[in-house]
């Protein structure tokens, strides 16, 4: 559980860095949104599996 928590925190930090870097390099909000939704989907699938 502790290891999982660390991975999740790192993932959140990485996501924020990714969004800010994307904005800095002039990527549109729409382009930045795509990977964020992709990660959300993967996490939703993981969460569902963990509950089963």
């Amino acid at each position: 559980m502790k290891k999982q928590a660390v991975i999740m925190i790192l993932l959140c930090v990485f996501a924020v860095i990714f969004v800010l870097t994307g904005l800095f390099f002039g990527l549109s909000y729409e382009v930045i949104l795509i990977p964020v939704i992709c990660v959300s989907i993967i996490l939703l699938i993981f969460a569902r599996r963990a509950e089963k």
Binding site: M1, Q4, A5, I7, M8, L11, C12, A15, V16, V19, Y29, I32, L33, V36, I37, V39, S40, I41, L43, L44, I45, F46, A47, R48, A50, E51
Partner: peptide, 29 residues
């Protein structure tokens, strides 16, 4: 589709992170 099938669940790191990613998506959108 996945959100609609999300039931009441435990408070674990994955679920918390899912919420933060959904919030990030909302902010960008």
């Amino acid at each position: 589709f996945l959100i609609d099938r999300r039931k009441e669940h435990e408070d674990n790191p994955i679920n918390i992170t899912v919420n933060w990613f959904l919030i990030l998506s909302i902010a960008i959108a």
